[in-house]
């Protein structure tokens, strides 16, 4: 693993110590709120009301998780419904985005056709403004298509997110043409070339698209959903947290459980995500 070794030229011991100390302080700042959530999720009720407030738990308990189960049983809409809603939207949106954006990225990276450059520069342009800019017309279009208050109002916009297409297109350009050509000589149709040759070769990139979409949809709180039965897990979480300090323990328990999915997914795929980002650059 020679390439994993760091280079040693132009480094002083003092500088190394200073930069390591700096990193530790900032890591503390970044980790503290998350540590607080995890710690609070295990606090018994008397520690939640303590004055002056204490940051870390002293007598950890699973009470908050137990009362979460009670709360789940009592809620008007079964709590499993929120879990299902979030799982459904996350899965459908992620699969749709990865497949459609990768097909488009393959065309943009590996085919010559009229309009290709226009399409790609439009994609780069859309990275330069956020969805907030288009929220008014987006609402009007969704309502014209009768999609307001349906899961599709979350899924479809997520499928056509441009960041994923951009990252995938950049990574696709590194796939050698010879690999694709040999499949074409064998008579494979272009979709088969895409699906069976190109996609396995860009596994880091599609894993990255999966991670980015899961993160976005798992935490999604759509403004276009009004029916209680269609609300998402994060929306249920904010309702629990609105119960004030008495619910702080239960709220932290939910927040802790919700955090496990995106964080776990990233930890498992970190190497591939970083590999994908190597080609993320914009060339002048």
């Amino acid at each position: 693993m020679a390439e994993q070794r760091t280079h040693k030229v132009n480094r002083s011991l003092g500088g190394n110590i200073a930069s390591f100390a700096f990193l530790l302080v900032l890591a503390g700042f970044m980790a503290l709120p998350l540590a607080y959530v995890i710690s609070t999720a295990f606090k018994p009720i008397d520690e939640l009301f303590l004055y002056p407030p204490r940051f870390f738990v002293r007598n950890p308990t699973l009470d908050n998780f137990a009362s979460l189960l009670v709360l789940m049983g009592e809620s008007w809409v079964p709590f499993t419904r929120y879990v299902f809603n979030t799982l459904f939207v996350t899965t459908a949106g992620t699969v749709g985005h990865v497949v459609l954006a990768s097909m488009a990225a393959f065309a943009l990276a590996k085919h010559e056709f009229r309009g290709r450059n226009l399409m790609f520069s439009t994609i780069v342009l859309t990275l330069m403004f956020s969805g907030a800019v288009t929220q008014v017309p987006s609402y009007l279009i969704l309502s014209r298509l009768n999609l307001i208050d349906t899961p599709l109002s979350i899924i479809i916009p997520a499928i056509q997110a441009s960041l994923g297409l951009y990252l995938m297109r950049q990574f696709m350009t590194t796939v050698p043409d010879s690999l694709l050509e040999s499949a074409r000589i064998d008579g494979a149709r272009e979709f088969r070339v895409f699906w069976s040759i190109a996609m396995p070769a860009v596994k880091p990139a599609w894993l990255t698209l999966v991670i980015l979409t899961v993160q976005a949809l798992w935490n999604n709180t759509s403004p276009y959903i009004y029916k209680e039965q269609l609300k998402s897990l994060p929306q249920a979480l904010s309702q629990i947290l609105a119960g004030g300090i008495a619910r702080a323990g239960t709220g932290s328990a939910v927040a802790f459980l919700m955090l496990l999915v995106p964080l776990g997914a990233f930890i498992l795929t970190q190497t591939q995500v970083i590999e994908t980002m190597t080609t993320s650059g914009i060339k002048e």
């Binding site: 709120p33 935490n219 994060p234 904010s238 927040a255 995106p262």
Partner: peptide
Amino acid sequence: ISGAVYMIW
């Protein structure tokens, strides 16, 4: 990527 956890602030 921690979603609503920032509410802890």
